[in-house]
Amino acid sequence: MATAEEYLRVTGLHAFYGESHILHGMDFSVNRGECVTLLGRNGAGRTTTLKAILGLTGKRTGSIMLNGREVIGWPAHKIAHLGVGYCPEERGIYASLSAEENLMLPPQIASGGVSVDEIYAMFPNLQERRKSQGSRLSGGEQQMLAMARILRTGARLLLLDEISEGLAPVIVQKLGEVIRTLKESGFTIILVEQNFHFAAPLADRMYIVEHGRIVAEIGRDELEQKQALLHEYLGV
């Protein structure tokens, strides 16, 4: 793949939380408009990979090329302005803000974001609950809000951490549809997923993460032939 197409390239990335060494040389890349999944067991380092890209871990070494720039030494608030939106695993809905304030919180970082009207069309529940305090939303509503608020900002690379976790099947299905729509409108997406069956139909490529490094890459058309690999690492 030509490098001009690359939105993100991570090379030899090590990351630490205090003394603990979590990532041991991650290498992967994501192309513009692609949906890539990081699969792996709990504690394999997938969430830490997203946080390291965003500058939220402790010490980092290696290289993170984002939109053509080396950002390994950048502070977190500057990285967002290169067009990165983050939906954390714990959803990160602010309890002290209303649903609407949560939605409007992330600053606009580029033009071309999804408008508030479109967001409310996509997630009608959020419009109904917009005056509710963040802490009063249901799990599904919180997840939708966490997704929705990063679509508004004009971010083109979405880092989505375990968005299907702990949600009712009907909501998971809804989120799947949303991601398909986002792909069609050209967003670049990294999905960190535990749920292989949610991720598999959405992803163009999958990386398997184990002990803080990439141990396998599986293309969309290789699913059949690499069944054994998936079984070995993920038990699916």
Binding site: L54, G55, L56, P75, A76, H77, K78, I79, A80, H81, Y86, P88, G92, Y94, A95, S96, L97, L105, P106, P107, I109, I150, T153
Partner: peptide, 10 residues
């Protein structure tokens, strides 16, 4: 409430 996430939003 959540300084790290807020910073990740830019």
């Amino acid at each position: 409430e959540n300084p790290k996430l807020t910073q990740a939003f830019g």
